Computed example of a mutant assay.
Amino acid sequence: MLTQSIRERLALFKEIYAELYTELKWKCDKRSLMLIAAMYVTNSKEFQLHRFLELADYIKNEVGLFSHLRTAHRFTVAATLETTTDTPKEHFAHFSTIYQKLIDNGYSRAVYSYIAAGTLLKIEPHKVEEYAQKTVDLYKGMREHHPFLTNSGDYPLASILATLDKNKEDILLHVEEHYHALKQKGFTIGNDLQFLSHILALNEEQKPDESAQKCVEVKTLLEKAKFKSKKMYYPYIGMLSYLEQVESEMNHLVAIYEDLNNDRLFKWNKDVNFMLSVLFLMSDKALLTEAATTGLNTTIEVLLQAQQAAMTASMTAAVAANNANNGG
Rank of each mutant, 00 (worst) to 15 (best):
S229A: 08
N251D: 11
Y139T: 06
K226M: 07
D170T: 09
V272I: 15
A162D: 04
K230H: 09
T163C: 02
Q308R: 11
A56R: 01
A158W: 02
F274P: 01
L196V: 01
A79D: 05
D29G: 09
D271K: 09
A255W: 05
D165S: 12
D104M: 08
S96G: 07
I189Y: 02
T312V: 01
T135Y: 00
L221K: 03
K140Y: 12
L296D: 05
K226V: 14
D263N: 14
D209E: 15
A117F: 04
L279N: 02
Q100R: 14
K226P: 01
V272Q: 05
Y40Q: 00
Y234I: 04
L287N: 06
Y114D: 07
L49R: 06
D86C: 04
Q184S: 12
T188M: 07
S314T: 14
L172F: 04
Q48I: 13
V319Q: 09
N261G: 09
N261L: 11
A79M: 01
Y155I: 06
T80L: 14
H68N: 13
S277H: 07
N297E: 12
I256C: 05
V128E: 04
E124H: 11
L161K: 06
E130F: 15
Q308Y: 03
A292V: 14
I115Y: 04
D29T: 06
L182W: 02
T42R: 01
K25W: 09
Q48S: 07
G153K: 05
G64V: 02
K27Y: 14
T294G: 09
N261S: 07
A158H: 05
N323D: 12
A132P: 07
E217Q: 12
A317H: 06
L53R: 01
E210W: 05
M315V: 15
G327D: 01
A158K: 11
N203A: 08
G186R: 00
K27Q: 13
G64E: 08
L303I: 15
L55Y: 09
V302H: 06
K285M: 08
Y58E: 03
T3H: 05
K45Q: 10
N297A: 14
E290I: 13
H146V: 10
I256E: 00
Q4D: 13
M315E: 03
L164Q: 10
R51L: 15
T135V: 12
L173S: 13
N105A: 14
T85F: 02
F280A: 07
K185C: 01
T135S: 13
I189E: 06
T135W: 00
S211V: 04
T42D: 01
S283V: 08
K270W: 07
E169T: 11
L287E: 10
I199Q: 04
Q305A: 08
P208V: 05
L20M: 12
G106F: 09
L240D: 00
I98L: 09
K122I: 06
E169V: 08
L173W: 04
W268V: 11
K60R: 13
E90Y: 14
G141A: 04
L265T: 10
A72F: 11
E54Q: 10
D57R: 12
L182V: 03
K168D: 04
T119E: 10
A324M: 13
N105V: 15
N326S: 07
M311Y: 00
N297G: 15
F66Q: 11
A117E: 00
M275P: 01
Y257S: 01
P125E: 11
L182M: 10
L196M: 07
T135Q: 03
V272A: 09
